[in-house]
Design a protein around this nucleic acid. Structure first.
Lengths: 261, 261
DNA sequence: CCGCTGCAAACTGTTGACGATCGACGATCG
DNA sequence: CGATCGTCGATCGTCAACAGTTTGCAGCGG
């Protein structure tokens, strides 16, 4: 194989620095190295990645659009903090997409899709038996990715992925109880059966229910609706007329109206 | 009122140049001033906006994430060209979200929502009678925005808005036939009735059907599946291993494999 | 002891400039 | 006469520096 330096150069020839920085920052955020709610220091990140601030800023702009960070003028970018209510909505939307994908697959299963899903379910069963939550988690991601690939278009897949990323921001990782693993995989098996049955409506119901049950398990494992403060989020519409609808990422605010100049 | 200059300065104090540039570029794209498929000249845009290339690049990076533009390394950014197949998927996703919103509203209508929707339907009826497609179009947007506001969360609203923006890219604007307007508004009335009926399932069906009918009308007005070439779109996953899955925004292609160096 | 004022450091927002790459045009050679 | 190579212009990607703002702290006064 070629030495890693050559590979790096080849990557640089095909991907811009901003894009690789974007993936790296996304990894740092989702991996928890940059905790939710914390501020992102552009200079520090640039130094860490060995690049300049320009590409870092561009990458942050992209992550902002995808909902991972929020930016306050002259103050910086913050890793978005997803509230419990928002997390619940994310589950609902995922349920919707998953149900639709199940219905599509049941109506006309792509060749090989069911076999692949079945194999993943089997592997998850093994992981659940071994209480290997880490492995189960990864396989679960694969299962749902395969499901979407088989029954949803590229746009839906991207939306689903974005929603999953945002969900990671709510908590460092919803702890996976052993019983939850087994219950979840039972639902996977039920989904598979429904997909085989060629009944789109039933498949949609089962798929939706699976995610909704995940939402329930998630809500049950959440201690309470921790309501630290106004959740930082920049929605679509933001008129300058409003005082400040939601953007209070940091806790310290000095609302000095002394902006007279 | 204050002179526009002062207002501009105040905006600059609360919004970054990149964000206003983003809105402006989005407006240019959706308004058709920058046609779909064309390249975006950063310098020219910066000059036009009277700013430097930095904010423009940041804005483009954000639009890229939201699916309005695609960027090819060392070649530039192109206004995304949505294929017919992609447009159909966009309709499906909008149908899904709209149906869900209808079901939610029917289950528990927020105060004032039904009245507002009814008023909009009435206004649309007037516009349809007057054959004022422009006005009908705007009211239709308002209607669906109000629907989502009443029955969907902020995230779903943002997704819906993004999908609508992408849909604009397919064609300069699907021409609205007078009969289509009337048919569409009849469906609006049916939706309203279903919402009043307090039957979530029925409301969901009607809402979904409305969008699916819009999809049908759209497909009927589309001359054919114009298949110029591989549609430029950057999906979620992009391994450097693949040769080049889809990114062929410009028509001139020089697939010389002579990248040996 | 607490609050206010002023200054200094840090950081962000923006700009301009430099190097590198790509596409196009024209010249040269088979 | 056609194809290939070299050169040129245009544009992108990246960097370093400047200006403006916010934050934190020290000093002062009440």
């Amino acid at each position: 194989m070629a030495p890693p330096e050559a590979s790096t150069l080849e990557i640089l020839r095909t991907h811009s620095l901003a894009s690789v920085a974007g993936r790296e920052i996304e990894r740092l955020i989702l991996g928890g190295e940059i905790p939710a709610g914390s501020r992102i220091n552009e200079q520090a990140l640039a130094d860490r990645l060995g690049i300049s601030r320009g590409p870092v800023r561009e990458a942050i702009r992209g992550l902002e659009r995808s909902g991972l960070v929020v930016t306050v003028i002259n103050q910086g970018s913050y890793v978005r903090k997803v509230s419990a209510a928002e997390a619940l909505e994310l589950y609902d939307l995922r349920a919707l997409i998953t149900g639709e994908a199940c219905a599509t697959i049941a109506a006309n299963p792509p060749p090989g899709a069911l076999a692949r899903l079945k194999a993943l379910t089997g592997a998850m069963a093994e992981a659940a038996t071994a209480d290997d939550a880490q492995r189960y988690y990864g396989l679960n991601l694969d299962f749902h990715a395969a499901l979407l690939e088989a029954g949803a278009g590229p746009r839906a897949q991207r939306i689903y992925a974005d929603l999953g990323n945002e969900l990671h921001l709510f908590r460092r990782r919803a702890l996976v109880a052993p019983e939850n693993m087994r219950e979840s995989n039972r639902e996977h098996a039920a989904m598979l059966a429904a997909l085989r049955s060629r009944d789109p409506d039933a498949a949609r119901r089962v798929g939706e229910t699976h995610i909704r049950n995940g939402k329930r398990r998630f809500a049950a494992s959440t201690p309470a609706v921790e309501n630290d403060q106004g959740p930082p989020q920049a929605a679509t519409g933001g008129e300058p007329g409003h005082a400040r609808p939601t953007p209070d990422p940091p806790r310290r605010r000095a609302p000095r109206i002394a902006r007279g100049r």
